[in-house]
């Protein structure tokens, strides 16, 4: 499947993946993340069960302390 991940086109070999699988593959291992799939906020507890498909837009935002 080909998706838009953080505004970049990325291709993964499986046809579908969970958000957690994509995070593992792309090494997103931070504590404080905001995840949006096709513009909808996805809470942490739903990441393992939420399926990402070809053409989807996934945004993974890392929030770091300091302001």
């Amino acid at each position: 499947m080909t998706i838009t991940l953080n505004n970049r086109i990325e291709t993964f070999s499986p046809q579908e993946m969970s958000i957690t699988q994509i995070m593992d593959e792309k090494s997103f291992h931070f504590k404080m993340l905001i995840v949006k799939l096709n513009g909808t906020l996805i809470p942490r507890e739903s990441w393992p069960l939420t399926v990402v498909r070809d053409g989807d837009r996934l945004d993974i935002i890392h929030l770091v302390s300091g302001g």
Binding site: N6, N7, G39, L63, V64
Partner: peptide, 18 residues
């Protein structure tokens, strides 16, 4: 800057030891 719909994130998004 990362743009995600109406959400905009400015910075390097990198974790550092304070």
């Amino acid at each position: 800057v990362q743009r995600s719909g109406n959400l905009y994130i400015c910075g390097d998004q990198r974790e550092t030891n304070e």
